[in-house]
C-alpha cells in the first residue's frame, strides 16, 4: 500500500477538521479499507483513526430506541445484553458478520458508512427505519443509502451513532458466499410502530425496501404471506457466484426464513 500520514484525533470536531482534506480518509476497524489500500485501489494522503474518540462508543437505551455508537464493534453488538433483549435480530446479525476476527475489529459506523452492497448492517438500518446521527445532522435510513458504496454522508461528515427504534418483532436471514462470507442475498423484516418494513441486501447494487413483501406482511404476518411474493431480477447483481435470477429467487427464500426467525 502507498504510505500516508496517520492521525488519531480525540474528538469528533478534530476528526472533522482533519477530514476537510479531500484526500484524507477515516478509518475505524479497517477491515474493508486496509484490504482496499493493499490493492492500491485508493491513495489517501492521510488516515484519520477514529478509534480514540470516546464519544463514538457505547450502546444505550434511549426511550423506545437503542442508540449504538459508530465505533461499536460487531462483537459488542452481538454480546450486548441490551441489544439481545430489545432487538435480538440485530444481535443475531452482528454475530454472523464475516468471521470472529472481523467481528473483533469491524465497527457498525464503518460498515454503514461504506455501504457495501453485500454488507449486513445496512439491511437492519433500513429494515428497522433507523436514524443515522452524524457530526452535523440526523438522517433517516430511507434517505441515507443512495447507491453502491454511496451514502448521503458529505466527505468530511462522520457517522456518530445509529438510533434503532425497538420493533415489535424482527428477523434476519441471509445466504452467504461460503468462501468470502459476504451476503449473496439477505432479508431483514420488521414489524414496527410505523408499519412493516422489509429490506433486502446483497442481491442488488444497494440495500433496498421490498414494497410487495411489506404489503403482504402488513396484511398477514406469516411465512406463507411472503412465500408467494416474487422479486424481479431486473437490476439485481450477477456475478460468478450467482445470476440475478438466482439472487431474485433467494430473496423470497430468505424472506420466508426471516419471518420464521422473527416469529
Amino acid at each position: 500500500m502507498y504510505d500516508f500520514a496517520y492521525h488519531k484525533p480525540a474528538t469528533v470536531a478534530d476528526a472533522v477538521k482533519l477530514l476537510a482534506d479531500p484526500d484524507a480518509k477515516a478509518i475505524s476497524g479497517g477491515h474493508t479499507l486496509l484490504p482496499a489500500l493493499k490493492h492500491r485501489l485508493n491513495k489517501p494522503s492521510a488516515l484519520v483513526d477514529l478509534s480514540g474518540i470516546a464519544e463514538l462508543k457505547g450502546i444505550r437505551k434511549v426511550g423506545n430506541a437503542i442508540v449504538i455508537g459508530a465505533l461499536t464493534r460487531h462483537v459488542e453488538v452481538a454480546t450486548s445484553a441490551e441489544v439481545k433483549a430489545a432487538i435480538p435480530a440485530l444481535a443475531y446479525m452482528a454475530d454472523h458478520i464475516g468471521d470472529v476476527q472481523v467481528r473483533n475489529r469491524g465497527t457498525m459506523g464503518g460498515s454503514v458508512s461504506n455501504n457495501d452492497p453485500a454488507a449486513d448492517y445496512p439491511a437492519a438500518v433500513l429494515g428497522l427505519g433507523a436514524t443515522i446521527h452524524t457530526s452535523s445532522r440526523k438522517i433517516a435510513a430511507d434517505d441515507f443509502f443512495l447507491g453502491m458504496f454511496t451514502t448521503a454522508l458529505e466527505p468530511s461528515e462522520i457517522l456518530t451513532a445509529i438510533e434503532f427504534p425497538i420493533p415489535e418483532k424482527a428477523g434476519y436471514a441471509k445466504m452467504k458466499n461460503p468462501a468470502s462470507r459476504y451476503v449473496m442475498a439477505g432479508v431483514f423484516v420488521a414489524k414496527t410502530a410505523g408499519g412493516v418494513r422489509v429490506a433486502v441486501n446483497g442481491a442488488g447494487p444497494c440495500v433496498f425496501r421490498q414494497a410487495d413483501m411489506e404489503a403482504a406482511l402488513a396484511a398477514n404476518w406469516s411465512v406463507d404471506a411472503v412465500a408467494g411474493v416474487k422479486q424481479a431480477a431486473d437490476d439485481l447483481n450477477s456475478d460468478i457466484h450467482g445470476s440475478a435470477e438466482y439472487r431474485a429467487h433467494l430473496v423470497t427464500v430468505m424472506a420466508k426464513r426471516a419471518v420464521a426467525a422473527a416469529g
Partner: peptide, 11 residues
C-alpha cells in the same frame, strides 16, 4: 484474536 495483516502497527 485479530488478523495482524489487517491491523496497522500504529493502531
Amino acid at each position: 484474536s485479530v488478523k495482524s495483516c489487517t491491523t496497522l502497527a500504529v493502531m
